[in-house]
Design a binder for these strands. Structure first.
Length: 369
RNA sequence: GUGGGUGUAGCGCAAUGGUUAGCGCAUUAGACUGUGGCUCUAAGGGUUGCGGGUUCGAAUCCCGUCACCCACC
């Protein structure tokens, strides 16, 4: 059975409209998944997320495994109940975190031994363990353990990481026995032949969707788009395509044009906490800047979110300058609203076969992001 | 009034005779892509209280003066 339906293919590009069915509801694609690593999209309540139009969020097996631990989540009745979010959840395996956060790690074909970034305790996780953890989380879409190479990276290491990712994907598939949707993760850094080999082998294993990993890890933009373009062209049309960890609005638009369906990124919330807002027809805006000291207009005059309906730039700047936590919340809320609104606009443009015009129009006035 | 102490960037402080007076915070402006609210990068900002003197050279030593602090009258 296929959980993904291709609803419409844009006439003038590879952009596509789709629908993904999960145990906790349907997701219209292209979609953006706000990131809730520690069972919370930082500073936002489930209601605020829902009101912003979020149809799925992302969480993280590595973080939740370390804290609060699986026993707590199991007793809570799964991640949905624990965090009181009843729409779909995709959980990342934690492959990325093992390679970016752990104090120490030793990777072998068997799995990965690492030291917790929280308390230094040593853990050993095999791909099978990571599937079990996500079974207990009871998320809707789950990801296999993978090895994410950063940029720049030698061809030898990229090949090693890619091959291990494939082996682990096969073992994950074997260990996966329920109705959660398991995606395959394509690695191979910036090397097209490695990406091709990885794609082919994962496609042969028949996953519910395919994720493009190891992107936006420091590589220049042109290389990034080359790889997205290349891999997207290899993937089956009838399965969802997920570009992991991406990204800026312009990255998302470029990737949608290349046929990507799903995105997640910390940018709206992290930038929100750090005082950068995304504004329609403008781009990135640093809320702290002195120029807004007496700007009593809304953050984004085209936005209908709670922040923009009720507060001025001058007030938001004041909140950031005084380190008041409401500022983090209000700008995070706006940014999430902005990203989800962007996705709605993208879907509508594809539906009307005018994605190219939409992209042109969007980029015309939109700078730096 | 007497004695002592202190005056250096918006604030708190370094620099005890030797290049162009530094540091932290603050300010200003950047960065952040499968999340630690953190962190990082850069910039602006000085008549060293004021006036005089000694010296090749003074934030630094001397004299005067002003302000503030402490103690004693």
């Amino acid at each position: 059975m296929n959980n993904f339906t291709l609803v419409h293919q844009d006439n003038h590009s590879r952009a596509r409209l789709g629908r993904l069915i999960t145990a906790h509801g349907e997701i219209n694609t292209p979609c953006f998944m706000p990131v809730g690593t520690q069972a919370t999209v930082k500073t936002l309540s489930a209601k605020e997320l829902e009101d912003s139009g979020a149809s799925i969020i992302l969480s993280n097996a590595y973080h939740l495994f370390l804290r609060p631990g699986m026993e707590v989540i199991k007793k809570a009745g799964g991640l949905h109940n624990f965090m009181s979010w009843q729409k779909p959840i995709l959980t990342d395996s934690g492959g990325y975190q093992v390679f970016s956060l752990a104090l120490f790690r030793k990777v072998s074909d068997e799995g990965v031994e690492f030291q917790s970034h929280l308390d230094g305790a040593k853990h050993f996780l095999r791909p099978e363990d990571v599937i079990d953890i996500q079974r207990d989380l009871a998320s809707d879409i789950i990801m296999p353990l993978d090895e994410c190479a950063h940029y720049p990276c030698s061809r030898d290491y990229a090949e090693l990481a890619m091959k291990r990712t494939i082996q682990w994907a096969a073992r994950s598939k074997k260990a996966h026995r329920n109705s959660q949707l398991l995606f395959g993760i394509i690695q191979g850094a910036t090397y097209e032949d490695l990406r091709r080999d990885c794609s082919r082998q994962l496609i042969d294993m028949d996953f519910s969707g395919y994720a493009l990993g190891g992107v936006s890890v420091g590589e220049p933009k042109n290389l990034r788009y080359n790889i997205i373009n290349f891999v997207s062209g290899l993937l089956p049309k009838k399965k969802p395509r997920y570009l992991m960890g991406v990204g800026m609005p312009t990255d998302i638009i470029e990737a949608v044009e290349l046929g990507v369906d799903m995105f997640d990124c910390v940018i709206p919330t992290r930038y929100g906490r750090n005082g950068t807002a995304f504004v329609s027809h403008e781009g990135k805006m640093t809320v702290r800047n002195a120029t807004y000291t007496e700007d009593f207009g809304p953050l984004d005059k085209f936005c209908s979110c709670y922040t923009c309906k009720n507060f001025s730039r001058a007030y938001l700047r004041h909140l950031f300058n005084t380190d008041e936590m409401l500022g983090l919340r209000l700008v995070s809320l706006h940014n999430v609203h902005f990203f989800l609104g962007l996705m709605r606009n993208i879907r509508e443009a594809i539906r009307q076969d005018r994605f190219a015009e939409f992209k042109k129009e969007f980029l015309k006035n939109y700078n730096n992001a």
